[in-house]
């Protein structure tokens, strides 16, 4: 019970921080909007596969930007303060939940902008929304952990991209396959097995973060 309360308190702290320092939130939003606008100027209304590919690449870059700051923003002093206050596992879980929620929000915003600017080739919109919610959370979980690693490595944001891109390729490949289903009129099988696989993947990432984060934490 106390575990959940601790995580909730830490989560609230994250939300509060976000409200107090809104510039970073709006910064990412502006980044999303301007990138999609540039895409619109560059290619108008692209084909389905291009649309799908661009959407997931967009999610990837949003995630790197949105999640990176969750650890990179904190100064050494503040990290030391948290270290003395709470359990590393609670801290990590709160960060992950917060990043997942943030990423969910961002991906929905970008989906709306995509539909607005780049046309709406979706024939199963609900499936696509479901897949993108699920995908956004999965990506954010992986990047939360990588942000924790990158934060230890001299606050190096570029490092996160270097570490993250190879690691995320398999997941993105699965997500693109999965969301590709939403474009065709014929419903294809194989969705369930991909969902299950991604779900196991997410659980593995969370477990590994819980196990490994305490090692990153102590310095």
């Amino acid at each position: 019970m106390t575990t959940i309360r601790h995580i909730l308190t830490l989560f609230k702290k994250e939300v509060l921080l976000e409200f107090r320092q809104q510039y970073s939130f709006y910064g990412v939003l502006l980044y999303v909007a301007s990138t999609i606008f540039v895409l619109y100027l560059a290619m108008g209304q692209p084909e389905n596969t291009v649309w799908n590919g661009l959407f997931w690449m967009m999610q990837l870059f949003i995630c790197v930007n949105a999640v990176a700051k969750s650890f990179l923003q904190e100064s050494r002093g503040r990290q030391l303060y948290f270290y003395s206050l709470c359990h590393p596992v609670h801290f990590m879980l709160a960060k992950m939940i917060f990043n997942a929620v943030l990423m969910l929000l961002m991906s929905m915003v970008s989906l709306v902008l995509f539909l607005l600017f780049l046309g709406s080739p979706l024939s199963h919109a609900l499936i696509f929304i479901g897949v993108s919610c699920f995908g956004a959370m999965s990506i954010s979980l992986v990047f939360s952990f990588l942000a924790a690693i990158a934060a230890r490595a001299q606050q190096n944001a570029a490092l996160m991209a270097i570490l993250g891109f190879p690691l995320i390729i398999p997941e993105l490949m699965l997500l693109m396959r999965m969301s590709g289903i939403a474009f065709s009129d014929v419903f294809q099988s194989g969705l369930i097995s991909i969902i299950l696989l991604l779900f196991c993947f997410d659980i593995m990432v969370v477990l590994l973060s819980i196990i490994l984060f305490p090692f990153l934490w102590k310095d």
Partner: peptide, 30 residues
Amino acid sequence: LIYLAYFVLRNSLTDRDKSARISAVYNVFA
């Protein structure tokens, strides 16, 4: 690529102890 990133991570850290621990964590994750 995943394992090449492991070496990039290692080399980006100058402190031997820290580099060893962080890259060990990444190795398990990778």
